[in-house]
């Protein structure tokens, strides 16, 4: 039983990480597309902290994805 759940959780983790990568690459693509457009208008419009969002997203997604799988082993004993 727990093996089936672990496989399901593994698939969910994989989908989650792939979704995160897709969003990060789309964000990067759009950021560079409009970043050059902003720079053609003004240097002052260039946005900062974009990488902060990306790294926060990567860390939190990995933490939640693998954290949930680890949690599965301890959840019957936490109460």
């Amino acid at each position: 039983m727990s093996m089936i759940v672990l496989i399901i959780l593994g698939i969910i983790d994989l989908i989650s990480i792939l979704m995160m990568l897709a969003l990060v690459f789309e964000f990067r693509h759009m950021y560079h597309k409009y970043g050059s457009f902003f720079r053609s208008l003004s240097d002052t419009t260039s946005n900062t902290h974009a990488s902060v969002y990306v790294w926060m997203y990567v860390v939190i997604t990995l933490l939640f994805s693998f954290g949930a799988t680890l949690l599965y082993f301890i959840h019957p004993h936490w109460l």
């Binding site: 979704m19 969003l23 964000f27 759009m30 950021y31 994805s65 949930a68």
Partner: peptide
């Protein structure tokens, strides 16, 4: 087990939703 898997899916969907929102707002000017 069903509750655990559902909770995980909900948590991950929410995480992706929040960051989708943040990154979209960042690009909307």
């Amino acid at each position: 087990d069903a509750l655990f898997v559902t909770a995980t899916i909900m948590l991950l969907v929410t995480t992706h939703g929040i960051f989708h929102l943040l990154m979209s707002r960042y690009l909307s000017q």
